[in-house]
Every structure is written in C-alpha cells, then in structure tokens.
Amino acid sequence: MKAKFLVPLFIFLLLAGFLGYGLKLNPREVPSPLIGKAAPAFRVPQLQAEDKTISPEDLKGRVWLLNVWSSWCISCRYEHPVLVEFARNSPVPIVGLNYKEVRGDGAVDAKGLDPATELATARQRARQWLTEHGGDPYMVSALDLDGRIGIDYGVYGVPETFLIDQQGVIRYKHIGPITRESLRDVLLPKIAELQRAS
C-alpha cells in the first residue's frame, strides 16, 4: 500500500527524464536523409579558374569534404580560420560550395541581374572575402549562384559540411561552423576511418 505514494514520484521522474533528454537535443540539427546516399551530381563553374568547371565526379576515388560557404554568412567568418589552418596539412581536399553569393545577400538587389554579371559579381565578392579573411582553404570552389545545388544537398543554413567517400557517397553532415573540437573529435576520426577502408 505504501508503494502507492511513490507513483506520482515515479511519473515525475519519467517526465523529467524525457524533458531532460529533450533539452539536450538541438532542434536546429535536422538529420539529413542524404547520409549513405550518393552525393547529388552537379557541374558548375569554378570560383578561381574561370574557364574550368567542377563536379563531384572529378573527385571519385578520394575522400573529400564539401564545405558550403558564402561571403554574407556570418558564422563562416568563425569557421574560416579553422578551415585555413586545417587545409595546411589536411589529409583530404576541401571543396567549397559557394552558396548564393549574390542572391543570398539581403543587402544586394539581385533581381534582373543578367547571368554573366551575376557570375562576375559572385567571383569578385567571393575572392575578395577569401583574401580579407585569411586565404583560400579550398582546393576548388563551386559556384552555386541560384542555390539549386544547395537544395539538392538539403542545405538549409550556411555553413554546412559534407564528408564524401571514395565512391561518392555522403557519409556525414556537419551542421553549423566547424570548430577545432568538432574537427578533432568527429571529422578527423571519420576521415581516418574512411581512408583506412580503401
């Protein structure tokens, strides 16, 4: 009979357990359905080499990182020094996906801009930003002017980073800026694991 008084306490602890767990979840981190799937294809102009294009196809056989960035993205400024440092002796190439460089900037009226002007403006802005923020950590950057590649990759906030394996399969997605800690604790072990597998 005495145990009956413990019932509300038990219910409370159960609720507290659920709520406590819920507090630790980050609603901003939406799990990507693309993990384990082939990286969506694209072929777009490169940022630096004006006469060249880049596609995930070009990186088949290598483990690589696809880092979504933009000059108007504030969090990218925190991430950038980490990437520059990482790129100096990175075991894998970092490919940039410059996301909506011109259209994504709320301060710019991109409506009615003709494609050639938009491409040139994007190149100029992105290069300038890289110069001003410590250099270019990317082996190559793809220009996703209209954000369509971003949609194909399920990008909903910049920066985001995808880890892609030798077969071109997305193995991991990092949401938000990469920090030294996340690099050391999560990304590097995963990279090492993928490279061992080859």
Binding site: V30, P31, S32, P33, L34, I151, D152, Y153, G154, Y156
Partner: peptide
C-alpha cells in the same frame, strides 16, 4: 523535398 530534407 523529403529526399533532400527528410520527414522533417
């Protein structure tokens, strides 16, 4: 859309 962003 679900293929890109999940059931979310």
């Amino acid at each position: 859309l679900v293929a890109r962003y999940g059931d979310f």
